[in-house]
Write a protein that binds this DNA or RNA. Structure first.
Lengths: 192, 192
DNA sequence: ACTACTTGCTACAACTGTGTAGCAACTAAC
DNA sequence: GTTAGTTGCTACACAGTTGTAGCAAGTAGT
């Protein structure tokens, strides 16, 4: 159920396994431990030495990914920088994490788990930022901020999963997300 | 691998199983045949009588769902109605299908399968519609139409999955999707 | 050399899921 | 009443996955 802590260069093995698991599980969420071990270039028993159960492995992946995302958000100085700058920075930073850790970030974490709490914290930061953007007149007054956040997450997801994530540079992708979130795809005069 | 066709009221059983499978698999994509049978209120062997293998069941679900989506698109008179009307209609119709058949529509169909071809046809119709919208001046000239379609799909997905899908009426949801797609959430003056 | 640590390998037990077969019972049609 | 069709149930064979244990071998530090 929990990770068995070992010594020295085992650290490296753990990282290797986590990255391989992310690679494999993002393609096939129900891939076997055997497949993960093969991708990591280690024996299946070695994986079990580090992660007692499959569940423990996945939990660790989620925690690991959520921590990286939290760092990415912190680096954008969400609460102090001018809101539009923070939004752009956070988008670029989050994309970088999301491209490499898509599986771990998309599968919902267990209630009360560490990753659950971290992700909830990120959502809270996000909501605060959008509130600031609305007060600054960047977001319309009549939009539902929860909906805005959901759209923002969906756009991040879309851009991170799309095949262009590897070959297009982060800034182009981030610009696309923020621009679409703010202005959509229509002309200003287009009316429903 | 294929569905075994039987006679009379077996038709009803098949529908029951398909709907139960959708309900169960949308919550847990790797749920067992046992769980699906239980949800359908039949014995597991009965499921196997209709669908020789698990794969056959899923394939049938995808085909079924994609046909319904194709109907929904046809009903919107994609190619003849004024483009904005068609977009709104198609959105409302598609949402109705997507809410009840989320699993079957989201999981990628096998290459060359019937559902694959149907879904490809829907994408083509969709792209034609967006091209017309661009020519009509509804969509900006500088936007990438492929990106627009991807955002549109993502918005549909978001709205159909969100908990509000059951209790909010379809027109409100469709309006939300189209409005967000066209204008985003920002004020016209907001600049990146 | 000795020790601690880690790994690969083989083997094994337990469990789960899948697909098939046979049989008794029920239903509707004729 | 007979028949065809359908279902539930039990049972079984088979595959694959998970988790554990033991042992030989390799590496690094002392």
């Amino acid at each position: 159920m929990t990770v068995r802590p070992l010594r020295s260069d085992a650290e490296r093995t753990v990282r290797t396994i986590l990255e391989a698991a992310e690679r494999v599980l993002s393609r096939n969420p129900s891939a076997s431990m055997e497949a993960i071990a093969a991708a990591a270039g280690v024996a299946r028993t070695t994986v079990h030495r580090r992660f007692a159960t499959r569940e423990a492995l996945v939990t660790t992946m989620k925690t690991w990914a959520s921590r990286q995302l939290a760092s990415a958000v912190d680096d954008a100085r969400f609460d102090t920088a001018p809101p539009l700058v923070a939004l752009y920075q956070a988008t670029a930073n989050a994309l970088q994490v999301k491209v490499s850790w898509g599986f771990s970030m998309n599968s919902a974490p267990a209630d009360g788990s560490e990753s659950d709490e971290i992700m909830a914290g990120v959502v809270a930061s996000c909501d605060r930022l959008f509130a600031r953007l609305q007060q600054a007149g960047v977001l319309r007054d009549d939009v539902d901020l929860v909906w805005v956040r959901r759209v923002y997450y969906a756009l991040l997801h879309e851009v991170a999963q799309g095949g262009d994530a590897e070959k297009t540079d982060i800034d182009t992708l981030a610009t696309r997300v923020v621009d679409t979130l703010l202005h959509g795809a229509g002309t200003p005069t287009a009316q429903l």
